[in-house]
Design a protein around this nucleic acid. Structure first.
Lengths: 230, 230
DNA sequence: GCAAAAGTGTTCACACTACACCCATGC
DNA sequence: GCATGGGTGTAGTGTGAACACTTTTGC
């Protein structure tokens, strides 16, 4: 059957992952040091080639798992990069995905074995090929998404405090937020579940833990309410 | 040099175009009737295969030009589709693009020769493969973009009236707009240039023509102002 | 003079912003 | 008792939504 397409050319298709994390201070990026030419020794995104028997989503998940050991992670397709000479070795398309992971849950040994390291996004090194473009686009996308969809929680532990969440949003948008207004907005969100437990890590008084109620959120969305968190 | 990638598989890469137009009444979609198997006789998006010596953007432009004769059209990459069996003939990725064209400017003979036809988006036929998904995603993207970027003008003639523009926005969002509020908002936009000329086509009184001042808009954006048109 | 669409102004309510004070606790 | 971060309340302002009337012109 494939014969009818045989007049057309085939292409290498890579998948590159922009992996974001949060260390309670700054937004972080997981990068790998290339162990092979070209660009050996330089930093790049984690990537790999698409296989015949996997969808592109599956391919991206496989690559993320190879580096971090994680599955069931928030991941979203970012953009397809297809300049003719973007890869100097051979014509290769790349479909970029970005992922949000919890920095305390990935497999450090795996990451080490790939020479991976976390960098604060604000101090990331120059990357190979068009990977800098990818990171910038991912950042822009993350900023927009964090505003309109409840994805920030993917970067925090299950239980988090409001100051932690605020700190995350400050890191994502790289600007300070008024803590009273932020709390006020959050407290008006029905899907935010207050727990009877405090985090004493960052203050004497302690801050209450909260959880995101995914099910309730879904229900509220279906009823027409929407997420908007500046 | 290509040898280092030879262990990896190559893939067919298609480009599919969601082509939007506006007939002053409804948002339209340019579709083609398949002249070959599989799915012969069914409706689909205009598509084609990526060539070795063109970028994916160039490929999408080529395919649009093949059908419409148009170049320099507003086009944006939408999404990459890569389910393993999305194309029953052979494993083929598709990168979808959407385009906004002026329905009075395309080459009708070319379109006819491809068995193309305009459909109101609300009455579009069922499409082959995953093309329905593509159209839905394109519609969602168009709605969002039209709000935050001045791309609606791409669907109107150079000179347009405020009622025309409103009608376009009503068509895009499929909901009526208050004409006083719409005018008020528009009139507060500096980049809207009022001409000394009226369109008498749709009323006795006639409506003034306007133009979009691209240069001024760019300048205003750089000064930090932003576009927001509900 | 009347029908049909274009154009303009006002009011109201809500949401966002800015801003200041009290609370709980460990040392 | 004091320093540190957590938590709450209020007043002012600007933006968006609702809504009604006048204008122009061809017939």
């Amino acid at each position: 059957m494939e014969i009818v397409y045989d007049q057309h050319e085939k292409h290498f298709v890579a998948l590159d992952c922009i992996i974001f994390g949060f260390d309670q201070q700054e937004l972080q990026l997981l990068l790998i040091k290339r162990g092979f030419e070209p660009e050996q020794g330089n930093w790049s995104l984690m990537g790999g080639f698409l296989k015949r028997d996997e969808s592109i989503d599956e391919g991206a998940e496989r690559i993320l798992e190879t580096l971090t050991g994680l599955t069931s992670v928030y991941m979203e397709q970012l953009y397809a990069y297809g300049e003719v000479r973007r890869d100097p070795v051979a014509r290769t398309l790349s479909i970029a995905y970005y992922a949000l992971i919890r920095t305390d849950q990935y497999n450090k040994d795996l990451a080490d074995s790939h020479n991976a390291r976390w960098f604060p996004v604000s101090q990331r090194p120059d990357l190979i090929f068009d990977h800098n473009d990818m990171v910038e686009k991912a950042l822009a996308r993350l900023r927009r998404r964090a505003r309109t969809q409840p994805i920030g929680f993917e970067l925090l532990p299950e239980k988090f405090t409001i100051p932690q969440l605020r700190s995350l949003y400050e890191a994502i948008n790289n600007q300070p937020l008024d803590h009273r207004n932020f709390s006020k907005r959050l407290n008006s969100m029905e899907w935010l579940v207050k727990l009877n437990e405090k985090d004493k890590g960052s203050s004497r008084k302690g801050a209450f833990y909260y959880q995101f109620d995914q099910d309730l959120y879904q229900k509220l969305v279906q009823e027409g309410s929407s997420f908007d968190l500046k």
